[in-house]
Design a protein around this nucleic acid. Structure first.
Lengths: 240, 240
DNA sequence: AGGCTGCGTGATAGCGTCTAACTAAATCTT
DNA sequence: AAGATTTAGTTAGACGCTATCACGCAGCCT
């Protein structure tokens, strides 16, 4: 929760570089923050599609159109929340990597972050809106997130190279943002990302609910297997 | 596209067991189908949240409330589309498994199915609506899908058993719906599902777009690795 | 032919986004 | 301090949406 605060107070997408100079500006930022606070609650309660500026205004004791002084549209508010979510995830990763620069630690930090507020996760990785194009600074944060992953995997011993993917990744390493990691590391980090997202998003979407499975165990097992720590090796032996 | 038709015409959730007896009923089913057709187009164009009964009515040349004769609410229409999506995926799997009972074939059938209509995929595996509870017949279809996966993996040689997961899966195999597969097979099928969903959903959500990566290659590599056919073995050698 | 059933209509309530014109207060300028 | 300007908030209203209701009307069945 405090982390969410931190991220939102950091997101002063307005004129002031830090904090606020004039009282007006300070007030403005505070109202914006309060609006986002209510917005987060609404999203947590009923999903992003149910977010209503009118309802927020009511909760804050003012009348509908007043909020348009602070957010030019409902979409802008949502975009801001998406930005904050990205920012919060990136911060979590950076902080975790600072304490324990290990893929395992990142993996569990990711799940904890996601469970703290599942809808925040879906704000980042959920069903996209067809027309929507993420603003540039968001993609910058995404690259930052990738960088943490690459660092974490760089620290680990890399297996032999030569996958078909590796060649492709070597040619298209723009997304790595100038990170010097070898292709094999890119591949590992990428797989780390996609595989954790696979388990985690299915858990958050409730697809394991009816199955009686323990999501934490599932996730931990997946992490172990990604790290090569699975108690059962892959079945290349039984392969033709 | 034809497949979609097939699925929708199959979904006669009404009174008639097959086709339609009376002319009235036939008319009713046809209108329902036409409504769903327009709904699918709208969802493909602007996502499920933008679906509007009013707009559909306009497109069909009738006035808003008329549609409530056919669907009691917007939610019911969406639920119906979700059901159709599940049905369509299950049919695709069953058909594919009938022709080529191999996980690889299923994997690529899944991606093709998803690419045919990405929003249909998200109808099944996308961001959930907080209050929403899937109807029972949908979970039945989900079990059917799982059964196809289990069959496909049963046909393959299984690696040694003994993962921590295996014990858990052995105790909670209710979701397997009475399928006799050993725990190791359950584990493989589950990983198959979560890992493919990981790559595929990120592709469909456009998260690879800004990266310049080739999603098809990524997916194929993941499939290869799941099957143990990766040109690079996992790095248990380099593991401490 | 007559009665029932079900289809489609317009009217209406209620909620949502968002614009526009206006008031009032705070801030800036001189 | 007084006036000019900027900004916050208001109400009114246009417009779209879901959903209900009462009504007319056609098709269907006996």
């Amino acid at each position: 929760m405090e982390e969410s605060e931190e991220a939102s107070s950091r997101g002063d997408g307005e004129a002031s570089s830090r904090s606020a100079r004039t009282p007006r500006e300070r007030y403005r930022l505070q109202v914006r923050a309060e609006v986002k606070e209510h917005a987060r609650e609404q999203i947590a309660a009923a999903g992003a599609s149910a977010l209503s500026l009118n309802a927020i205004a009511r909760q804050m004791g003012m009348s509908g159109p007043a909020l348009y002084r602070y957010f030019s549209s409902r979409d802008e508010l949502i975009t801001e929340l998406v930005r904050d979510a990205y920012r919060s995830l990136a911060d979590t990763f950076v902080r975790t990597a600072g304490q324990e620069p290990d893929p395992t630690a990142l993996a569990h930090a990711l799940r904890e972050w996601a469970l703290q507020d599942p809808h925040r996760y879906f704000l980042v990785y959920g069903t996209p809106v067809p027309g929507y194009r993420a603003p540039d600074d968001v993609t910058v944060i995404a690259t930052e997130i990738m960088a943490v992953l690459l660092d974490a995997w760089t620290a680990r011993p890399v297996p032999g190279t030569g996958t078909a993917l590796d060649a492709h990744l070597q040619e298209h390493r723009r997304w790595a943002g100038g990170h010097p990691a070898p292709a094999a590391v890119l591949r590992r980090a990428l797989a780390f990302w996609t595989r954790l997202h696979g388990v985690l998003s299915l858990e958050l979407a409730g697809h394991f609910n009816g199955m009686g499975l323990d999501p934490a165990l599932l996730y931990a097992s997946e992490v172990d297997e990604i790290l090569g720590r699975g108690s059962t090796g892959p079945d290349r032996t039984s392969e033709g």
